[in-house]
């Protein structure tokens, strides 16, 4: 009974604070609709119902976040580091293989099923005239996220500065950009943004913070953040790399007898050497 009561007060409190999170976007849309565009708001009832759904849904999600998603990430980080490290010994990054494996598995699994990514992949297939397959792109992005999160955990364990990795990744992306086809560039840049979903972000963030708290000598404040940054940058790299490999294979395999639609994409994809 007590637990139910606790839950109810928790829920009502969260709903009350959530109102202020959702109100701005609603106000902005209504003001622009009514005052600026001078149009009537149609389907007022379904908008009000929708607003209530958003409110309740966000409140429930935030409660679940506190009770499930954060604790899951923290618990996994703690149990994996306990399993790995000999207490008292100096930190050796090789002891934490399990952590990297777990990070890669979470990154890959969460990304491959991501609905926005599926949509982007299908569009990429269309833009490239079939040269880039939707499945290939999804796997490229998922591998990018897996490698990124895994490397991010390695960084936390070793305590090396985050900017080194991210700036180095930027440099690689810039070099790749100059060699890539113009059509794939916006898609590649966006694939970094769409991979980090509402469910994945809290789990991955908690994993990083938990790791920094449990590995001796690391501070959550300095070392704990950054996993999401890795998960955002590495897919850009892997998508650009995938596109480059595809066009290289095409050039080697097909020689001169490529179809017309492919010519257009391939012509800009690689500078003739």
């Amino acid at each position: 009974m007590n637990a139910v009561l606790d839950f109810a007060t928790d829920f009502l409190g969260t709903v009350a604070t959530t109102v202020f999170d959702v109100l701005p976007i609603l106000a902005i849309l209504v003001v622009f609709q009514v005052v600026v565009l001078r149009r009537r708001v149609q389907n007022l009832r379904s908008i009000v119902a929708g607003f209530l759904c958003v409110l309740l849904g966000l409140a429930l999600f935030l409660i679940g976040l506190e009770r499930a998603l954060f604790p899951i990430g923290e618990t996994m980080a703690r149990q994996l580091t306990e399993a790995a490290a000999a207490p008292g010994a100096a930190v050796d990054w090789r002891d934490y293989i399990l952590v990297y494996a777990f990070a890669a598995a979470i990154g890959f699994a969460a990304t491959i099923a991501e609905p926005p990514l599926i949509a982007v992949a299908l569009k990429a297939q269309k833009v490239s005239g079939g040269a880039i397959s939707a499945w290939g792109l999804r796997i490229a992005v998922a591998v990018g996220v897996a490698v990124g999160v895994s490397l991010g955990c390695f960084r936390i364990v070793t305590g090396t500065p985050l900017p080194w990795y991210i700036v180095a990744a930027y440099v690689v992306v810039i070099v790749q950009t100059f060699r890539a086809s113009r059509t794939i560039i916006p898609l590649a840049y966006d694939s970094g943004g769409v991979t980090t979903s509402t469910v994945t972000v809290p789990v991955v963030a908690a994993l990083g913070l938990g790791l920094a708290a449990n590995v001796p000598g690391r501070s959550p404040l300095i070392d704990g953040f950054g996993l999401i940054a890795f998960a955002s940058v590495f897919p850009i790299m892997s998508v650009l790399g995938y596109a480059a490999v595809v066009s290289l294979i095409q050039r080697l395999g097909k020689g001169g007898n490529a179809a017309g639609s492919n010519d257009q994409t391939r012509g800009t994809e690689l500078n003739p050497s």
Partner: peptide, 23 residues
């Protein structure tokens, strides 16, 4: 944690449904 996961699923579903029908 299981109760929390149910909250996450139901919350996310309501949230997205509300966005789609309202905003």
């Amino acid at each position: 944690v299981l109760v929390g996961l149910v909250c996450v699923v139901v919350g996310l579903a309501l949230f997205i449904q509300g966005l789609e029908s309202g905003l």
